[in-house]
Amino acid sequence: MKMSAHTSGSHHRGLPNGSGGAAILAAGIGAFAIAVLDIAADKVASVKSMMNFYRPTGPLSGVTMVSLILWLVVWGVLEWQWQKKDVAIKQISTIALGLLVVSLLLTFPPIADLL
């Protein structure tokens, strides 16, 4: 996937789309991280124990905290890289929405149990 900067188009539409693309892709990655860590914590005892950040909430606390930190870090890095650029927003949106839908399915226990 090519996500290089385009200068044409950024002026007549006002703002470049890179900042929006960064927020959208980071959100997809954040959701996907929750799904992956949920499955890892469910399948691997050491991961489950590692994710137990706050005992009353159990592994949910670690899975969500790690994913949220990852989401914000990815968002910050992408924003820094893309804020003044126009990026391939259609591909980025498709990937981000795809990650969100896959995450919705992967967290569904009957599907997660098949893995």
Partner: peptide, 13 residues
């Protein structure tokens, strides 16, 4: 418990 977190991530974005 997990999919609920997709809502704040999505809406913050």
């Amino acid at each position: 418990e997990y999919i609920a977190f997709f809502a704040p991530i999505s809406m913050t974005m």
